[in-house]
Design a protein around this nucleic acid. Structure first.
Length: 561
RNA sequence: GCGCCCGUAGCUCAGUGGAUUAGAGUACUUGGCUUCGAACCAAGGGGUCGCAAGUUCGAAUCUUGCCGGGCGUACCA
């Protein structure tokens, strides 16, 4: 496709002296293999009719092309031509590019809160963040990953007060992170009741504990460490099951003291302003943001912006990134606008990107959709994974499938559901579609890949090296056309941080491969040696692209399914 | 009120400017396992692309207005 684009661009430049960007698209087959509307684009500029322009281009083009409608150029190529084009570009890293060569990007995900069980609310930050990491790697960036743990702030106070009120060391030892979660929910309800009564005894105690932690009080630090230890074990276990990880885990607690120092610097520099009540803000009016960002509460406590400010500075000093990607839900869009404006104001030049995604909705009984909330009862990640594995096991064709393959299929189903739509689209959570094993789903793609891998394994004795120059690849046209789109798919997905483009591609590839499989024998009796070798060679390429594209999404291919 | 996002088939979603039939999945109806794995393939019905106006040779796609929904709007994170 790129090849044809360049050919046409060259002709347009020499014939009409016009520079084009890109203009070739893949057709459906009814209008050739590729089509372009360049003639109509430039007709006005060169003062000729679109059809005349098109005819001049076609005359210079060394390909089978015809002009249709108002001036479309439809190009038809041979299977052999497609195969040769793919071979020209082929490598073990087919699809990747070097757009980010020499540059560093920090990707932040999934940034859960500690002391709460890992819930499906953090499914998207993990999946999408992991995919962003892989897309950056595939485009040549140096990538640093950091889990910005929510191990600080008001919730800490809530746990301590709740723990002393509702729980005990024995209960904590038994229930672990789930006991902490129970305490948190009970305490939030208690606080709400208190607020209704117009009192603030409990909420004051929550703030007291938070301040104690900030001042390094021994008992508070001990609580914090204990809760963190329990939580981190849990977080690591669940992230392990999800197949994601980060190199760093620099949480809010790590940055809070640094943040307070930074706030003082900004006060000294006259950038931050202290209000009469003690709160500290930075005005952002010059960036079109009317609500100032709050850097310190009136009681002196740090909050989100305080630690994020320090985080920005720390990353600048340690890693000198050219770009930082925050994989965080859509609710925080406005906050990140504030943070990025603040960064500009203090002279940080790094490109900051909020890779946001839609919420996870639940269906109400009356048929309306509503954001999933802890008030309505969260769904735990472990529960989701268990359920997915149960479903995959129940639907398994053979009873002796390995636990590892079951795990891959379950995860493939869950992750693909996330990537099956644009990341900005809200996801409707429902137990049925979450584990979909057929149709537009992870297991569908995995299944196509497994079948291809099986054929390759069974025919390992036939090396696909010696591909006959005689074979015409006409039966492979659709597969070839799909494969040569891959580099462009990666580029677009990486440029816009839209992993769903990769998922769409993997599904499309699986579809053409399944059709091919149905209609074209590769290694059965009656297929001559040249044809067999040629077809196996193409399947080997297909297998590589399946593995590569699914890997970007964090999906593995089972041995059997 | 203001800001951002969204409205496409019964349902869940792609498609964000190029033509004849706007695509998938799901659900529904039907056909295909004695040949490389049927978690598959093939066929069918199902759409005033929220409404209206504008720009253009051409609009689901761009602009404006309206209607409907979601999220946000400094001491939560």
């Amino acid at each position: 496709m790129e090849k044809i684009s360049k050919l046409i661009a060259a002709i347009v430049r020499s014939e009409f002296g016009v520079d084009l960007t890109s203009s070739v698209s893949i057709s459906d087959g009814e209008h050739g293999d590729f089509s372009t509307n360049v003639a109509m684009q430039i007709a006005g500029r060169v003062g000729a009719s679109p059809r005349d322009v098109a005819e001049k281009i076609v005359a210079k083009l060394d390909l089978d092309a015809e002009i249709a409608g108002p001036g479309f150029i439809n190009i038809t190529v041979s299977g052999r031509w497609l195969n040769d084009s793919l071979n020209d570009e082929w490598s073990e890293k087919f699809g990747e590019n070097r757009d980010g060569a020499g540059k560093t990007v920090v990707v932040e995900y999934p940034s859960q809160n500690v002391a709460k069980p890992y819930s499906v609310g953090h499914l998207r930050p993990g999946n999408q963040g992991w995919a962003a990491r892989n897309l950056m790697l595939a485009t040549g960036w140096r990538v640093i990953t950091d889990n910005h743990l929510g191990d600080y702030g008001a919730p800490f106070g809530i746990w301590v007060v709740g723990f002393r009120k509702f729980s005990s060391p024995e209960k904590l030892a038994e229930g672990g992170v789930y006991e902490l979660g129970r305490v948190y929910v009970a305490m939030k309800a208690e606080l709400k009741e208190e607020e209704k009564r117009g009192e603030h005894t409990l909420s004051d105690r929550v703030q007291e504990w938070l301040l104690k932690l900030e001042s390094g009080d021994a008992e508070a630090v001990e609580y914090s460490q204990k809760f963190n230890e329990i939580s981190l074990d849990h977080i690591h276990e669940v992230m392990g099951r999800l197949g994601i990880s980060t190199e760093h885990e620099l949480g809010e607690a790590f940055f809070a003291p640094r943040g307070k120092a930074e706030v003082q610097n900004l006060l000294d520099a006259g950038i931050a302003v202290k209000n009469p009540d003690g709160s500290i803000i930075v005005h952002l009016d010059e960036y079109g943001i009317k609500t100032p960002v709050l850097l310190q509460k009136s009681n002196g406590a740090a909050l989100y912006a305080t630690t994020d400010l320090a985080t920005l500075k720390y990353r600048e000093e340690q890693w000198h990134p050219d770009r930082v990607i925050y994989a965080v839900a859509a609710e925080q869009k406005f906050y990140f606008e504030q943070l990025f404006a603040l960064a500009k104001k203090i002279g940080i030049k790094t490109e900051l990107i909020h890779m946001w995604f839609g919420l996870i909705d639940q269906m109400n009984k009356d048929g309306t959709r509503e954001k999933m909330s802890s008030r309505k009862g969260v769904i735990l990640m472990e529960e989701l994974l268990d359920q997915a594995e149960t479903t995959a096991r129940q639907n398994a064709k053979s009873p002796d499938m390995s636990d590892n393959d079951i795990r891959k299929i379950a995860l493939g189903a869950i992750k693909f559901t996330d990537f099956s739509k644009d990341r900005r689209t809200n996801i409707l959570f429902n137990w049925g579609s979450m584990f979909s094993l057929t149709g537009f789903s992870g297991p569908y793609v995995q299944y196509a890949a497994v079948r291809v891998n099986k054929i390759l394994r069974d025919n390992i004795a036939t090396p696909p090296a010696a591909i006959s120059a005689k074979y015409n690849f006409e039966a492979e046209r659709e597969v070839l056309k799909k494969l040569i789109e891959y580099p462009n798919t990666i580029k677009q997905a990486a440029d816009s941080l839209e992993p769903h483009r990769v998922a769409q591609f993997a599904y499309d590839l699986a579809r053409v491969v399944n059709r091919y499989y149905e209609n074209t024998p590769v290694a059965t009796a009656g297929v001559d040696a040249d044809t067999k070798a040629a077809r196996l060679g193409l399947l080997a390429k297909t297998a590589q692209v399946f593995a590569h594209s699914l890997n970007i999404l964090g999906i593995e291919i089972p041995e059997r399914m």
